[in-house]
Amino acid sequence: MTLRDVAELLKAEVIFGKQHLDEEFELAGASDLMSDVLALSRPGILLLTGLANTQSVRTAEIVEAKAIVYVRGRRPSQEGLELAEKNKMPILSTKFLMYKACGLLYGRGVRGMGDR
């Protein structure tokens, strides 16, 4: 699935990374707990989170996530956005809550970071 597919499926606003929308990913992970993301994620995942602070962008960068999707309409802080731009980390924001966002992706065949 591409990031463009994600944006369409989740009716998400692309806050940063329009030029990266054709990039593909296989696995996704969802957590508001960055500790779990650090411990369990895989390179190249789509990270869904409701935690829209700078730390979420730094964590995504450390674990080499493909992109961040903020749920519940959250948006990054100015500092977070600058960091994302610097590191070319696409950021999407969907109004859907976490459960629905994950369910829609799972229904389209995107498996979780713990699945294999």
Partner: peptide
């Protein structure tokens, strides 16, 4: 609130 403090840090360093 920052998304940390779950008691996973040190075990994750070890991992």
């Amino acid at each position: 609130e920052m998304g940390f403090g779950a008691g996973m840090g040190l075990p994750n360093i070890k991992k």
